[in-house]
Nucleic acid binder design. Structure first.
Lengths: 208, 208
DNA sequence: CGGATTCCTTGACCTGAGTCAATAATGGGG
DNA sequence: CCCCATTATTGACTCAGGTCAAGGAATCCG
């Protein structure tokens, strides 16, 4: 991973370009030529598609340290999805030619790039399982547990609208609302605005 | 892709091992050490997981020309899923060390391996969309359309049980049955045993 | 402060799809 | 050719979760 990041951040040898987007800014639209890959230095970017009825469906959400476009680059001529900054974001763009050159010339870069793609494949596989097998409730619990590192009692502060969390979980705000209420009635959490107090971590964990 | 296949099939330089499995044979179980990748030369292999209730869930189905284990190799120590031959199958196994050596020494191999992983990422993404956004009906239609290359009228011969097709589509046989019946009543297909005559390709296509 | 806008919750309702259970159809062996 | 096992269909039921619509709650701002 390291070699690749060094490469893309290096304005001299690597050839990565720094680009800054305000919250809501569009990195690219579906159909734009896929001529390079992106690295998120800071901020947050979401990738989404439109279905036939024009509804947005979130594909993935990128945080600092994530790459995007890496796979598309080798398969399609055009981006198949939309990319939009959720927060003010600083990203680095590496043009395809520069990447290919780097893969041949920079020792270790190919290996790190392979590792990156491999991680992505594994993550995607996990996502498929989650969508196919888990309920909204389970996905919500999983989300909460990853933000409260194992401690028995802790508080998760949402730094987003609930509608946004819903989209991340692959559902809608109404359903999220009902699930949060349910968990609260069962005494596992306590919701106050955008802060969620986890009162029974182990019981949450028992549901996976 | 080519370099990699040549490499894995070459008993001398590449170091791939030929392995043959009868229908129903187990290539590996979840938890087995992920010490190499597989290439399917002939036959058919399915990869599946168990959920907490012991139900099997199919992750992917591999046909001749497909690789698997390639991504897991770089991420986990153990296979996270089960692999089982659906038909008599001939596969080639390339040990991790051999692969790493090849990636460094064989020109073009790294690039082909990257392309392989990239394709996989894109396919997985499409699968996520399909599972998240499409109904069983849509997935069935998509399956039918890919086997009838655009011609107005043609017949798709299923070379498997309907229950198996159901699993491929991420559903169960009852639901598949109902969907086939529905499409037939709407006059788009004609089902006779395991052969499905597509009578109105364009109308199918209109539903995506 | 008070209106307006955005965000969140709730209820009523509907639909897709899974489960269970009961047949029907099919297809090999003996 | 018939019997049994596998495979396929059908019906009745249940449930998660989405849609629509109506209120609350919170927040922003002149």
């Amino acid at each position: 991973m390291n070699t690749l990041i060094e490469h893309i951040l290096d304005p001299e040898g690597g050839g990565g370009q720094r680009r800054v987007f305000p919250a809501g800014g569009v990195l690219f639209n579906a159909g734009d030529p896929a001529d390079g890959l992106y690295y998120v230095k800071s901020g947050e970017v979401r990738i989404y598609k439109m279905d036939s009825q024009g509804r947005e469906v979130e594909v993935v959400r990128l945080e600092p340290g994530d790459f995007f476009g890496d796979a598309v680059l080798f398969v399609h001529r055009e981006f198949p999805a939309f990319a939009e900054a959720v927060q003010d974001s600083e990203v680095f763009f590496l043009e395809k030619g520069q990447l290919l050159r780097g893969l041949e010339e920079v020792p270790g870069l190919a290996h790190d790039f392979i590792t990156l793609l491999a991680r992505k494949c594994v993550t995607l596989n996990q996502r498929i399982e989650a969508l196919g097998l888990q309920t909204v409730r389970q996905r919500l619990i999983q989300f909460l547990l990853t933000r409260c590192q194992g401690r028995g009692v802790c508080t998760v502060e949402l730094d987003m609208k609930k509608a946004e969390l819903a989209r991340i979980l692959g559902t809608i705000s109404e359903t999220l609302s009902r699930n949060l209420k349910q968990l609260q009635e069962e005494g596992m959490i306590l919701v106050t605005g955008r802060s969620i107090r986890i009162t029974d971590c182990s019981r949450l964990r028992n549901e996976q």
